[in-house]
Amino acid sequence: MGVDATVEGNAALQCLIALREARSQLIDDVVTHARNHAAASQTDLTQEDIDILCTGGAFEVAEFYYLVDRYNLNDKRNIRAFILHHNADVEECLTNKDKRMSLGLSVQRLKESLFSETQIERVVQSVAEGKLRLSQTDLACLLYQIMSAEKTRRAVLALAKAGLLIRINIGMVLIVSDGTLEKYFERHLRFIVTHLQGSLLSKEGEHQ
Rank of each mutant, 00 (worst) to 15 (best):
K203L: 12
M172C: 09
G198K: 09
S202M: 11
H33T: 14
L45T: 11
I120D: 06
H188C: 11
K203N: 11
D69R: 10
D98H: 08
L174G: 00
K111Y: 05
E117K: 13
H37V: 04
S126Y: 01
Q125A: 11
C15Q: 13
L73A: 08
L67E: 15
L53P: 02
K97A: 12
H37K: 08
L134W: 03
S199Q: 11
C54N: 12
C141V: 02
L201H: 11
V127M: 04
Q136T: 12
E112R: 11
A81S: 14
R190I: 10
V30H: 02
Q14V: 07
A40H: 10
M1N: 11
R154P: 00
A38V: 07
L53T: 01
R154N: 12
R77M: 08
R80W: 01
S113C: 09
I166M: 07
A5V: 13
V61G: 06
V156S: 02
L13D: 01
H85D: 15
A128E: 14
F185H: 08
Y71G: 01
Y184T: 01
D29Y: 14
L139E: 06
N10Y: 10
L159Y: 03
V61P: 05
F115G: 06
H37S: 11
E60Y: 09
D49V: 06
G104P: 05
L134A: 00
I17M: 08
L132G: 02
H188N: 09
I146S: 14
R122F: 05
V156Q: 02
C93D: 13
A88D: 14
S24W: 05
Y144L: 04
E150D: 14
L67I: 05
N87A: 06
I79T: 03
T6H: 09
T194R: 15
M101T: 14
V7P: 00
L132A: 04
D44W: 07
D29M: 12
D69S: 12
T43G: 02
H86I: 06
F64T: 00
K111D: 12
D178H: 08
D4P: 01
S106F: 05
L132Q: 03
K131M: 03
Q125H: 13
A149P: 05
N78D: 07
L165C: 03
L139K: 03
E63H: 12
G205S: 13
A38H: 10
F115I: 08
C15V: 04
A81Y: 03
E21H: 10
E204P: 00
L142H: 03
T43Y: 05
R35N: 05
S126W: 01
Q47C: 07
A160Y: 02
I79V: 15
L110F: 05
R167T: 06
R20L: 15
F59Y: 15
E63Q: 13
G163D: 05
V7R: 07
V31H: 07
A160T: 14
S41K: 15
R153I: 04
A18E: 03
T95Q: 13
Y71V: 04
R187A: 15
I175S: 00
K76H: 04
R100W: 07
L103G: 04
S126E: 09
R35I: 11
L110A: 08
M101N: 13
L16H: 04
L142T: 03
V193D: 12
